[in-house]
Design a binder for these strands. Sequence first.
DNA 1: TACTTTTGTGAAAACGCTTACATAAAACTG
DNA 2: CAGTTTTATGTAAGCGTTTTCACAAAAGTA
Lengths: 338, 338
Amino acid sequence: MAMTIYDISQKAGVSTATVSRVINGSGNVSPVTRQKVTAIIDKYGYIPNAYARGMGLRSSKTVGLLCADSSDLYTARAVYLLQQELQANGYESLLCCTGFNQDVRQDYLHLILSKKVDSIILAGSHFIATSELDNAYIREAADQMPIMLLNASYDHPHVYSALCDDYAAMYEAASSMIRSGIPDILYLYNSKSYSGLRKLNGFQKALDENDIPSSMRHILYYDGTPDSIESISDFVTKAADDGHTFHGIIGSDDALAAGGIKYAQQKGLHIPEEISVIGYNNSILTTCCTPALTSVDNCLEALTHQLVHTLLHVLAGEEMPQKVVFSGKLIKRDTTRF
Amino acid sequence: MAMTIYDISQKAGVSTATVSRVINGSGNVSPVTRQKVTAIIDKYGYIPNAYARGMGLRSSKTVGLLCADSSDLYTARAVYLLQQELQANGYESLLCCTGFNQDVRQDYLHLILSKKVDSIILAGSHFIATSELDNAYIREAADQMPIMLLNASYDHPHVYSALCDDYAAMYEAASSMIRSGIPDILYLYNSKSYSGLRKLNGFQKALDENDIPSSMRHILYYDGTPDSIESISDFVTKAADDGHTFHGIIGSDDALAAGGIKYAQQKGLHIPEEISVIGYNNSILTTCCTPALTSVDNCLEALTHQLVHTLLHVLAGEEMPQKVVFSGKLIKRDTTRF
DNA sequence: TACTTTTGTGAAAACGCTTACATAAAACTG
DNA sequence: CAGTTTTATGTAAGCGTTTTCACAAAAGTA
């Protein structure tokens, strides 16, 4: 029932080779023949079978998009932007969400390799900086194709990355808060990914430079579900009850900071007069909060654009930089005094 | 360099047919042979080429996930859940975001058909209830494979759907608000999708039943960018300035309702004493807002689960219901008086 | 034991496309 | 105009699987 290239060649009175050449715009075909074949193709709505095609060709024109959870604010946007960039360049996106499950990830690696994807893009807080398992994973994949890292980096000849200088951005955010007269800051983070660690280091750097004593450093890892603001505020309340005293809160993402705002409100503390809050990612949550949340814009759009740009050129066999770094920007709103 | 089934068959001293049978668990293979072949496969880490495979097989084990914008809160979650369900059942997800662009959608349809996907799932506020173009699109796709609709329905033998009874849920939400003593409600919506229209109708029904005069009906279509809470509150402010008077705001999604909250705060109106607000989707925004937003939970998880369930059975050739309806649930928080 | 059924296996065709090679026709050379 | 290059096209050999068919060996039958 479905048309094949053979059917088309019959109807057009030419060989399959000619039809193939017309479809791919390869080789020389006379204008009149091209026209004739095109007409038949249009008439019957013929669409070549990508599987048959993928066999002859080297490229499947597909890229695996690997992440843990594509529904979190940041990753969702990253996935969307990547997908858009890829589609605009004729590539398809195979979405692979591991849900932080190693087995699923293994299955996906298998699937991805069997599909002969042209590349894999790792997005979101997928992997943990310290995990040797992750490294093995990347290395294995990198043997077969270029691997693209969004906001992470890894030293390997086939691994390319585009990242935001989270270190500098968080350093800037913390410095601003200290400069505004708040030395005792609660730092909340919930991911030990590369970017999570970079942020943390930037924060520490700012404290170090300002000689903040360790008694004023409150760095807490929140390992609850990331999508419940209430449980975050409960977490902060508990921290305060446990003796942590702070007049500023910095979250490694906007949800954490939003939890900080909730905490302040429940406690009856005025923002920003009595306590300041800064988030990260500059997501929709920033303007949803009251007061609107000061946050770091990590130029995700630029990152995704660059990453796909690099990928396309790498696939075209060109020499490209392994690593491109952009800088984030502190967007000032109403939860800070500066 | 990459292994083929032929290489494996050589090393195992059997034919390719036997290797294929081992891989697919089809036909009869003696335990000893199976063992021998499996060992070789494992040893060399052989992964069959999905393209070659897709040629012989009828199924590509891939489903197209079509949406307009996978980064919006609701769709992102839908996509993630669908992808998880599919992956758990051995299917891959080809993510296709049209960005509301007809040409892109056309390209994707082409791509999808060439990839011989087993089905297409339409998710998110993808298509407009009144658009004949959309219908043609669905029909065309439905000729080739089952089409699954998330929270929409369409009468066609190959189109299946799982939906939330948004009509009833919104009716319930509006009724509750009216019952709490608020007859003049501002209804904000930003999508003319099937679900958008169903919600609107449910809202109207509640007003009708309570004999709310048309002078108290404020139904506004917001067509700005959906991810800026500020522009929504500006929109509401403008509506109030234009003479609309209301003591309740219902949004067809949480972002719109959040804009309503912002508006009330800027105006200095107390929530819920002076003005009530209800959102829809029960997203993370609900707890991010202050006060926490009362919202309708539209049981997305149940929908996605059901949809994939239906799909799998349809693909297995079983008879399945064209349409399964779930009911939403009003989650009461702090922006309403009931 | 002679006959039928089942089981395990391989040879080879098919799947729908691309492409290297061959060849004929057309277009240049000088 | 003979010789060379270019252009247009077709033939057929892959690409890596699955699967039909055939057949031999093993296992049941009576």
